[in-house]
């Protein structure tokens, strides 16, 4: 299981890569592996605002539909439209392919997220 060091993680298996006021968000290797072949990504709308843990989209795999939650509160400023054409990119490289970029409203949300070490431990307990 690939869990990059510099990202922050949620218990819903999303990651966020924070860069100043912005954060790129996506789903983890664990998430893509458990979902199986991803066939559709419903992206949020640019301009949409979401609180931490609020639903911002869905991901459909051959097995199930899972809800995507925002790892932190913010406003969506960009979405990865490539995923509309090629949802399987999330299987191929879940950390290289972000789903959306949000402008963070409250940095203190980030303190509630897991580090790579904590998330590794979290996943271990799920197995």
């Amino acid at each position: 299981m690939n869990i990059p060091k510099k990202l922050l993680y949620t218990s819903e298996h999303e990651w966020i890569r924070v860069d100043g006021e912005k954060g790129n968000i996506g789903i983890t290797d664990y998430a893509q592996h458990h979902l199986g072949d991803i066939v559709f990504v419903e992206l949020p709308e640019v301009g949409e605002e979401a609180a931490m843990g609020e639903s911002i989209g869905v991901i459909e795999s051959v097995k199930a539909v899972a809800t995507l939650f925002s790892p932190a509160g913010g406003k969506v400023i960009e979405v990865n439209e490539e995923l509309e054409e090629a949802p399987e990119l999330l299987n191929e490289d879940p950390y290289g392919n972000w789903i959306a970029i949000i402008e963070l409203t409250d940095h203190s949300d980030l303190e509630k997220l897991m580090s790579a070490e904590a998330y590794t431990e979290f996943c271990k307990n799920l197995e």
């Binding site: 051959v62 097995k63 199930a64 539909v65 899972a66 809800t67 939650f69």
Partner: peptide, 24 residues
Amino acid sequence: GRNDITIKGRKFSGNAQFKFRDRL
């Protein structure tokens, strides 16, 4: 082997799942 149940190779049941937080 996919999401169906079959009788003599013909489908009579289709199945799907929805996950929300820790509920399925």
